[in-house]
Design a binder for these strands. Structure first.
Lengths: 147, 147
DNA sequence: CTACATGCAAACCGTTTGCACCCTA
DNA sequence: TAGGGTGCAAACGGTTTGCATGTAG
């Protein structure tokens, strides 16, 4: 008897059945408030004693991506995809190179720039991704100590 | 007797031997002026009748990445890494969703924004990645025709 | 009751690695 | 000629898929 957070509706509206797996995975993603790898989600589920097969996690994430409830990204330029709950559609990331923490940034500095670029290039620009990299305050300290 | 484009020097300076493979791969990357997947490079080499093993391509790209002559990125959020010749250090991309063409953008609209964000977040920001997505002029036409 | 969802195991595919041979410096 | 570079084939790891079974609507 989990509290209805509203996404069951959205699932149904999109023609997806509202199953235990889907609700559990959405819960994890929303709670974490961070992009997560499929396996991280899998582990987080296990920690709550929810047993869902890894391939089901992948399939679920794919379904949720298809109905725009989840977005798949590759932030670190490695071979692991990350998945995040698609709350607001538009967001940017500030990533700590040290501890890998990911901050979400809501305000977007690129409003007028897209227009400019459209004129220059004749592209019809639909969106963009912006990732910023650096060291968070804690990791700046650690870094200093190690040197 | 290939013309010396100057990168042989840089190889040596970095302690890497100047081999046929490394020169050929750098040539391809520079010529293409686009981020390329390892296999694309492999194919491009083959088309010039240069036979280099795929794993050598990967190893070469890794070596070149280590000395900052090449950068590895994931633009399309898929499972293929792309590699590009690291000409200027700082650049952004405008990617056509239709034909997958990638334009490189030199000027960066994020100068002051990073400072702002540093103050807000206490991060020490080292850099960022900006990818813009849309349809190029040709693909806008195609799209219209297909609808 | 039926179509969609899931578990399981095997396949897949881009990438990496161990080892023997090759070639640059 | 020594030590890094390369080819080859096998391993690796994240992700996908085929098939039989389970379950939401």
């Amino acid at each position: 008897m989990s509290k209805n957070t509203g996404y069951e509706e959205k699932l149904k509206k999109s023609g997806l059945k509202s199953t235990k797996s889907r609700k559990a995975i959405l819960d994890i993603l929303i709670k974490s408030n961070q992009p997560m790898a499929a396996e991280q989600i899998f582990i987080a589920l296990k920690e709550e004693n929810i047993d869902i097969n890894l391939s089901t996690v992948y399939r679920t994430l794919e379904s949720l991506e298809n109905i725009d409830m989840v977005t798949k990204i590759n932030i670190m330029d490695d071979d692991r995809m990350l998945f995040e709950y698609n709350m607001l559609g538009h967001r940017h990331y500030l990533i700590c190179i040290g501890c890998k923490k990911i901050l979400t940034i809501q305000n977007c500095p690129l409003g007028s720039y897209e227009k400019e670029l459209e004129n220059e290039t004749n592209f019809a620009i639909l969106g963009h991704k912006l990732y910023l990299y650096g060291y968070c305050s804690e990791c700046q300290i650690t870094q200093t100590n190690n040197k």
